[in-house]
Amino acid sequence: MSFANRIALAKRNTIISDDEFNHLTLVRSIRNAFGHEHDVSLANEPQKSQCEKLYADVIGDGATYPLRRQFSSACAEIMGNLLPRLNSSF
């Protein structure tokens, strides 16, 4: 099952919220760019703006860290929020 299908299934089963669905969709989009395209960088569009949006939406502290740190921090926060619910759902 693809990451997109897993995200959709979690949304359908109300395991994740609309915001979490949108955050995970951004993570998926950034990951897919690195997995399927050449010469991809977080410094290039659309990955740069996606990464900045993800960090602002998830962390929202207004800090201007390097893009890789923004992406990693946002992903860690998402996982920290989701793991307790996912463990109790299965």
Rank of each mutant, 00 (worst) to 15 (best):
D18G: 10
M79Y: 10
L42V: 04
P46S: 07
N44D: 15
T14F: 15
N32F: 00
F90H: 10
P84Q: 09
P84T: 02
P84S: 05
D57H: 06
L86G: 09
E37H: 12
T14M: 12
I78D: 00
F34A: 01
R68G: 12
G60C: 04
L67A: 08
R85H: 11
L42D: 06
F71V: 06
K11F: 11
L67V: 11
P84M: 01
N32D: 14
S17D: 04
V58T: 11
D19M: 05
D57F: 00
G62F: 13
R69L: 12
R28H: 12
R6G: 02
M1T: 08
Q50T: 03
A8D: 08
D61F: 06
H36P: 08
L26H: 04
A76F: 02
I15S: 08
R6H: 00
I59Y: 09
S2A: 06
N13M: 12
K11S: 07
N13D: 09
L82G: 04
F90D: 04
L86M: 15
P46D: 01
L9V: 05
I7V: 05
E37N: 10
S2L: 06
E20K: 11
S41N: 11
A56T: 08
N87W: 15
L82R: 05
D18L: 10
H38R: 14
A4E: 07
N44H: 14
D39C: 07
L54V: 06
G62M: 09
D57V: 07
K53P: 00
Q47P: 01
S89K: 13
G35Y: 00
T25L: 06
R6M: 02
T25D: 10
V27F: 01
I15P: 08
R69V: 06
E52N: 15
L42I: 11
H23F: 14
S49T: 07
L26K: 04
Q70V: 05
G60Y: 03
R28G: 06
R85G: 06
E77R: 13
S41Q: 12
S17Y: 07
R28M: 03
P46M: 08
D18M: 04
N87P: 07
E52V: 09
I16T: 04
K11Y: 07
N81K: 13
F71K: 11
S73D: 09
Q50I: 01
K53V: 01
P66L: 05
S2P: 02
D61Q: 13
S49V: 03
S73I: 11
G35P: 01
A8N: 12
Q70A: 05
C75K: 13
S41E: 09
Q50N: 12
F71C: 00
H36E: 02
G62H: 11
E77S: 11
G60K: 02
F34G: 01
N13G: 07
A74E: 08
L54G: 00
Y55L: 00
E20R: 09
S73F: 14
